[in-house]
Amino acid sequence: MTICAFCAFSVQLYSPRRPVVDIAEVFLWLMAVGTILCASYWSAWSAREVAVEQDQLLKDASDEVTSPKGLGVSNVVDISTASAVFFVVIASCFLILLYKLMSSWFLDLLVVLFCIGGVEGLQTCLVALLSRWFKRTGESFIKVPFFGAVSYLTLAVSPFCIAFAVIWAVYRNASFGWIGQDILGIALIITVIQIVRVPNLKVGTVLLSCAFLYDIFWVFVSKSLFHESVMIVVARGDRSGEDGIPMLLKIPRLFDPWGGFSIIGFGDILLPGLLIAFSLRYDCLAKKNLRAGYFLWAMFAYGLGLLITYVALNLMDGHGQPALLYIVPFTLGTFIALGKMRGDLKILWTKGEPERVCPHVGLESNKE
């Protein structure tokens, strides 16, 4: 028997390769685009209903009413340039708070807040959808303590929404927990875009420009101040013991040998969505078709910007990328360039809606 005193061993480490195209990112792209699409059409439909109602009120109004100003909708909030800047400042403070206090108990607090917002969003979406079939129930109200007048349809839908959010909160760490989180998140985003409006292109430019700088700073620049990317640490929930904060949409990487989730933050959908919804409202009020309007091109620019974000993410070997770095130049740049080419930039920048002839004035001129 021969014994070898010196034997050569070679150790090879196997590193599985990730797929070139992650199906999770494809579905996230579709979810983001679809969410903005639904929210924009809902916002435009509401704006058109208000415009029709205003015209009818002006036709039936007395001689004292000669202008549509002041005939607005109480459940819609128009943001200003100051509030757009203030929003980004508050978002930065909140991000620092998350970074410093990130722990299991603080994440539980975020889950509670997310459930409250998700219940409100899901309830608003379901009531708006079901009221088309149960119109009488949606228009019948009952007075509820602490809440005031509430429709019977809202009372019927609320228990389901609350139960849905509670079940998600309990099973959020299960393999299927991401489904409930995405449903609540999408409903919340759609509701916010429906309630909060960009009144003109000037406000939209300020909002997205500030968000553009915000995203770049907290993803890239914050590394030099905190020795790590604050945005990425918070998004992944590194110090919480869970798979990230609930304020994002996520889909598991089913075909990635390394596992994990593909994620997109609410702000990457919500903030550009406010501008895109504004573009569709303008198109509807100006009676522009899709090709001659701004919505189609703004929507296309957003989708392209988000697509390039995922391309950059894969080229950077999975290192987090600020999505607004790519989305804002495409979306905002396309909108401004088209407005300049078509001669609508001044109206878009200041008024945010086309000139409308007051029907009351028209009726008076006919009488004369």
Results as ranks from 00 to 15, higher is better:
residue 228 E to D: 06
residue 154 T to S: 09
residue 205 T to W: 08
residue 236 R to H: 14
residue 104 S to P: 00
residue 352 G to V: 02
residue 312 A to K: 11
residue 103 S to P: 01
residue 284 C to G: 02
residue 230 V to N: 00
residue 83 S to Q: 09
residue 221 V to N: 03
residue 210 C to N: 06
residue 184 L to I: 06
residue 193 I to E: 10
residue 291 R to S: 10
residue 24 A to T: 03
residue 172 R to K: 14
residue 243 D to C: 14
residue 210 C to Q: 05
residue 108 D to S: 12
residue 202 K to N: 07
residue 236 R to F: 03
residue 114 F to W: 13
residue 260 G to C: 10
residue 261 F to E: 14
residue 129 L to E: 06
residue 163 A to V: 01
residue 253 R to C: 12
residue 283 D to Y: 13
residue 96 I to E: 10
residue 138 G to E: 08
residue 218 W to N: 05
residue 146 F to S: 12
residue 67 S to Y: 02
residue 161 C to S: 13
residue 196 V to I: 11
residue 270 L to C: 10
residue 6 F to I: 11
residue 202 K to E: 03
residue 99 Y to H: 04
residue 186 I to Y: 05
residue 4 C to Y: 05
residue 346 K to G: 06
residue 305 G to H: 09
residue 214 Y to T: 00
residue 33 V to S: 15
residue 58 L to W: 01
residue 336 I to T: 05
residue 277 A to S: 15
residue 72 G to M: 02
residue 16 P to V: 12
residue 348 L to I: 09
residue 144 V to M: 05
residue 145 P to F: 04
residue 81 T to Q: 05
residue 7 C to P: 00
residue 319 H to Y: 07
residue 28 L to D: 04
residue 6 F to A: 09
residue 106 F to Y: 15
residue 66 T to L: 02
residue 192 V to T: 06
residue 194 Q to C: 03
residue 205 T to K: 07
residue 285 L to K: 09
residue 170 V to Y: 06
residue 138 G to P: 04
residue 227 H to R: 15
residue 77 V to W: 12
residue 108 D to L: 03
residue 302 Y to V: 01
residue 329 P to T: 05
residue 312 A to T: 03
residue 8 A to N: 13
residue 78 D to Y: 11
residue 141 F to K: 12
residue 16 P to E: 01
residue 246 P to G: 13
residue 12 Q to A: 15
residue 65 V to S: 01
residue 32 A to N: 08
residue 239 R to Q: 07
residue 197 R to V: 03
residue 203 V to T: 13
residue 359 P to F: 02
residue 364 E to G: 01
residue 249 L to A: 13
residue 272 P to T: 11
residue 279 S to Q: 11
residue 42 W to F: 01
residue 225 L to E: 13
residue 150 V to Q: 12
residue 332 L to P: 04
residue 212 F to C: 09
residue 257 P to G: 04
residue 3 I to K: 05
residue 157 V to T: 10
residue 310 Y to S: 06
residue 11 V to M: 14
residue 81 T to I: 08
residue 351 K to E: 05
residue 203 V to Q: 07
residue 98 L to F: 11
residue 102 M to A: 14
residue 87 F to P: 01
residue 82 A to N: 07
residue 95 L to K: 06
residue 206 V to I: 07
residue 194 Q to A: 10
residue 227 H to S: 15
